[in-house]
Structure formats: C-alpha cells, structure tokens
C-alpha cells in the first residue's frame, strides 16, 4: 500500500524485553516475545501517518476472518479511506500488536493514532454514531 507499510511489515525484530507501557490504564501481560523497538517505532509512525488503520486478518480486498471483514465493511460503508495491515503476514507484528494495543484479538482499529477498539466496539460505535464522530474529528485534524 505504501512505503511506510512495507517498512513496518519488514522491520526486523531482534531486541527482546525492554518494553514500556504505552496504553493508559492498561494491564500489561508479560510475554516471552516482546515487541522490538524498531517494530514499535514503525507502528508508531504508521498509525500517526495514516488517520485510519485496520490491523486485520487478511486484506481489505480479501479478509480472512469474519470479524475483520465486518470492520472492513463498516469502514467502506462510511466511505472513509483507511490503511489495512495484514497481521497474518508477519508473526512478530501479530504478537507485537497484541502488546502494543493491550488487546488480545484482531481486528484492531486505530483512529487518529489512537487505538479505538476491536470488532465489537467498532460495531457498537457504528450503530450509536460515535464511530462517525470519531472519524470526522480525526479527518479534520
């Protein structure tokens, strides 16, 4: 999709440990496979540069999980441009994003650089209108 995406997916993960807490109020589970600083920085930059990012199983053209597909349908329905990242293509990214977001499952939706939620939250927010508000706010920034 973009060079930023390619860089993130290809970022090597050699370092272990040294992970700092990122999400406010999140309970951090210690895993044996910490997200390396290079990958973390790539994700930081990617979610900053792209206003809406969906970390998903498969791609928006070919989702490989019903929950990821649901989020793609919602975002497409709202006519919002978004970047898709296939976490199945990179095991380090897949494990790392669980830690980065303090969230155990996929899809993971980022809006304006912030973790917004998984599938249930996205569906709920789509229905109650708060997703639209959040997207509009991010687009105006």
């Amino acid at each position: 999709m973009s060079t930023a995406r390619a860089a993130m997916v290809c970022a090597p993960v050699r370092a272990r440990g040294g992970v700092r807490a990122r999400a406010r109020g999140a309970v951090r589970r210690v895993t044996t496979r910490a997200m390396g600083p290079e990958l973390r920085e790539s994700v930081d930059a990617f979610v900053r540069e792209n206003k809406v990012v969906l970390f998903m199983k498969g791609t928006k053209a070919a989702p490989r999980c019903g929950f990821s597909n649901t989020c793609v349908q919602i975002l497409q329905n709202m006519n919002v441009p978004f970047a898709d990242v296939d976490i199945l293509a990179n095991e380090d990214l897949r494990q790392g994003m669980k830690e980065y977001s303090s969230w155990p499952t996929f899809p993971q939706l980022y809006i304006g650089g912030e973790f917004f939620g998984g599938c249930d939250i996205t569906v709920e927010a789509f229905k109650d209108g708060s997703l639209k508000e959040e997207l509009e706010r991010a687009m105006m920034e």
Binding site: G25, S102, W103, F116, G117, C119
Partner: peptide, 23 residues
C-alpha cells in the same frame, strides 16, 4: 467502552489466547 472490554479480557486471562473468538 474500551476499558470495560479490557476488564473482561483481564478477568478471562489465558482463556483469551486459547479461544478463536470472544464477542
């Protein structure tokens, strides 16, 4: 909303990594 879900994830612990889906 986000934190409510995180409280459920935390309560479920390892169950979250064993199951395929949790709505």
């Amino acid at each position: 909303r986000l934190q409510r879900h995180r409280m459920v994830h935390e309560a479920l612990g390892d169950v979250m990594s064993r199951v395929h889906a949790m709505k």
